[in-house]
Simulated assay, not measured.
Amino acid sequence: MIVRIMGEGQVRLAESRLADLNTLDEELLAEVEKGDGPGFRATLQALLAKVRELGEPLPDDALEPSDLILPSSDATLDEVKELLSDDGLIPGT
């Protein structure tokens, strides 16, 4: 699957690795719902770091359709709130 991090680029991530992101996604959803700014910021950074760690960056000139779009590391709580579904940022996890 192709994951885009807004403002950074795309990474190829095995769908089997989505489960590795589930805990962070659930934490992020809870922090956004509570309005926990510091917790949200830390968890968003951790989630994006995990995606970068588990994924393989695509070349800058590659442009493939993204299966999942994640906010940039400097996204605000309100911006992320708009991207969330009932499942968090990562549907089905």
Rank of each mutant, 00 (worst) to 15 (best):
L54W: 08
Q10M: 12
D67E: 15
F40T: 06
M6D: 05
G7M: 00
T43E: 02
G7Q: 05
L89H: 08
L18N: 09
L77V: 14
P57L: 03
D78H: 07
L13T: 01
F40N: 09
S72W: 02
S85L: 04
S16G: 04
E53M: 02
L63S: 13
L83C: 01
S73P: 03
V32E: 09
S73K: 10
D36A: 15
L47I: 08
P38M: 13
A75F: 07
L63T: 02
E33S: 14
E15S: 15
E79V: 01
G39Q: 09
P59L: 10
L28M: 01
G55P: 11
V11C: 03
P91E: 01
L84H: 06
A42P: 04
T23F: 14
E27P: 00
G35S: 12
Q45C: 05
G35R: 06
G35T: 02
L63A: 07
I90W: 10
R52T: 05
P71T: 06
E64H: 00
E31I: 05
R41P: 07
A49N: 08
D67W: 04
L24H: 10
P65S: 09
V51M: 10
L68Q: 07
G35E: 04
R41D: 13
D74S: 04
L54S: 08
L77E: 12
L84S: 02
Q10T: 05
S73Q: 09
A14G: 14
N22D: 13
A19F: 00
L48W: 11
E79T: 03
G88M: 03
A30M: 03
A46R: 14
D61V: 13
L44H: 00
L58D: 09
I90S: 12
G88T: 10
L70C: 14
G7N: 01
E56T: 11
L47Y: 15
R52I: 05
V80S: 12
S16L: 03
D61W: 10
E27S: 11
R52F: 06
I5A: 10
L21P: 14
G92R: 13
E79H: 05
I90H: 07
D78W: 08
S85K: 10
S66I: 00
A30F: 07
E27T: 03
Q45K: 06
S85R: 08
D74K: 13
L48R: 12
L54N: 09
L68E: 05
T43I: 01
N22T: 13
I2C: 00
E15A: 15
T76M: 12
A30L: 08
S73L: 14
L63C: 01
E31P: 00
S85Q: 03
P65N: 10
R4L: 04
M1T: 15
G35F: 11
L13N: 02
G35C: 13
D78N: 07
A75L: 08
R41E: 13
P65F: 03
G9S: 00
L21R: 03
L13H: 09
L84I: 14
L44E: 00
E82F: 07
E79D: 04
G9Y: 01
I5R: 02
M6Q: 07
K34Y: 01
L70V: 08
A49D: 07
K81E: 13
L58P: 02
